[in-house]
Design a protein around this nucleic acid. Structure first.
Lengths: 188, 188
DNA sequence: AGCAGGGTATACAGATTAGTATAATAAGGG
DNA sequence: CCCTTATTATACTAATCTGTATACCCTGCT
C-alpha cells in the first residue's frame, strides 16, 4: 500500500493506544503523521473506518505473530498450548505494548450497536477460537472450557499490564495457565 | 446526602456504564436526571470530580457488598476463598451489570497522569489486596501470587461478560479459580 | 513545455463539548 | 408577608470535534 496510508495507520494506532481512541482527534493524528486531513479522508472515509482498520491491523499482527512463533518453535500440539503464554508474555511485556486493542475499544464503545464494539467482540471470539483449536489438537476433553479460561487469564493479564506496567501479572498468569493446562491434559 | 446529588450520581453511573464516560455529556446527565447543569456544578465542581466520585461509589458498593456476603455466609478463612467467585458471579451476572467501573475507566483514560486512571489503578490494587488478605488468613504460602491470579481471572471474566452478556465466562472462571485455590491450599 | 495526480495549506461549516452568568421561580420559616 | 435558600430556565462563551471546500504546489511523464 502507499506509504502515507501506512503511516497514518501506524500513527493512529500508537495514539489510540497511548491517549485513548475518543480522546484522539483527527487533527492530532495528521499532525503527528506529518500530513493533512485531506489525505487522511482520502484514504479513510471517516474516523470510524480508520478506527476499524487500526483494530483490524492490530489484531492481525498479533495473531500472525503468535501463530508463527508457535508453529516455528513447537511441533507437538500439547507443547503449543504450554508455550502459548510464554509467547504471549513476550508480546505483552514488550516496551511498546499499551494494551490489547480490542479490550480497550470495547470499553470505549460499550454500546453493542457500535461497529467498533462489534469488531472488538468478534476479535475476542476469534482469539478464543484459536486457543480452542490448539486445545482440540491436544485432545483435550473440554477444549472450549479451557480456551475460555485461558483467554480470561490472558485478557485479565493484558488489562493489568496496561493498567500498571511491570506489574508482573503475566508471570503469574503463566503459572496459572500451566496449572489449568496440565489439569486438562491429565483429564484427557 | 441530598436526594438530588444522589440522583445525579446514580444517573451518571448508569450512563457512564452504558454509553461510556467520554461519550456521555454533562447535558445528557442532567437531562436524564431531571435537573440542570447549574445544580450539577453546584455539587460537583467539574465533570472529572463527578467521574471520580462515581468510580469511588461504585467500588465501595461492590467491596462492601462482597465482604458482607462473605462474612455472613462463611466462617472458615479457606471457605471464604472458595465462596469468593460464587458471589462475584452473582454480582457480575446481575441484569444491571455493565462492566467493572475501574476496568473501563482505565481504558478510557490510559494516560497514567490522569487522576481517573490513577484511581482506577488504585481500586484494582485494593481489590487484589483484599483477596490477598483472604489468602493470608487461609494460610496460603504464596498469598500474593494467588491473589494476583484470582484477580486476573476476575477482571478477565468481568471484561468478557461486559463484552458479551451471557457468555458464561464466569462459570468457567469459577472452575479455574477452584483449581488454583485447591492447589494453593494443598501446597500449604 | 505542459499536463495530470497526489499532496499541502488553510479556512470554513456545523455540531458538540465543559463550564458560567443571569434572571426567574418555588418553597419554607420567622 | 418577607427573607432565605434551593432549583430552574436560558442564554452564552470558548474550545474542540468531524468533515469539507478551495486554492496552491510539486513532481513525474510524455
Amino acid at each position: 500500500m502507499t506509504p502515507l496510508r501506512e503511516k497514518i495507520l501506524i500513527t493512529a494506532s500508537h495514539l489510540f493506544q497511548t491517549q485513548g481512541i475518543n480522546s484522539t482527534g483527527v487533527d492530532t493524528i495528521v499532525a503527528v503523521a506529518g500530513t493533512t486531513k485531506m489525505t487522511l479522508y482520502k484514504y479513510f472515509t471517516s474516523k470510524e473506518k480508520l478506527i476499524l482498520e487500526v483494530l483490524d491491523k492490530g489484531h492481525q499482527d498479533f495473531q500472525t505473530w503468535l501463530s508463527n512463533k508457535l508453529n516455528s518453535n513447537t511441533k507437538k500440539p500439547s507443547e503449543k498450548l504450554q508455550k502459548l503464554f510464554e509467547f504471549i508474555e513476550e508480546w505483552v511485556t514488550s516496551p511498546d505494548f499499551h494494551g490489547m486493542g480490542f479490550i480497550k475499544a470495547s470499553a470505549e464503545f460499550p454500546s453493542e450497536e457500535s461497529p467498533v464494539h462489534q469488531l472488538s467482540s468478534e476479535q475476542s471470539r476469534q482469539f478464543r477460537q484459536y486457543i480452542n483449536s490448539l486445545a482440540l489438537e491436544a485432545n483435550i476433553q473440554d477444549a472450549e472450557g479451557l480456551a475460555l479460561q485461558l483467554s480470561l487469564l490472558f485478557e485479565g493479564a493484558a488489562q493489568a499490564e496496561q493498567m500498571k506496567r511491570g506489574s508482573g501479572a503475566m508471570k503469574y498468569a503463566k503459572k496459572a495457565a500451566k496449572i489449568l493446562i496440565d489439569g486438562a491434559l491429565a483429564q484427557g
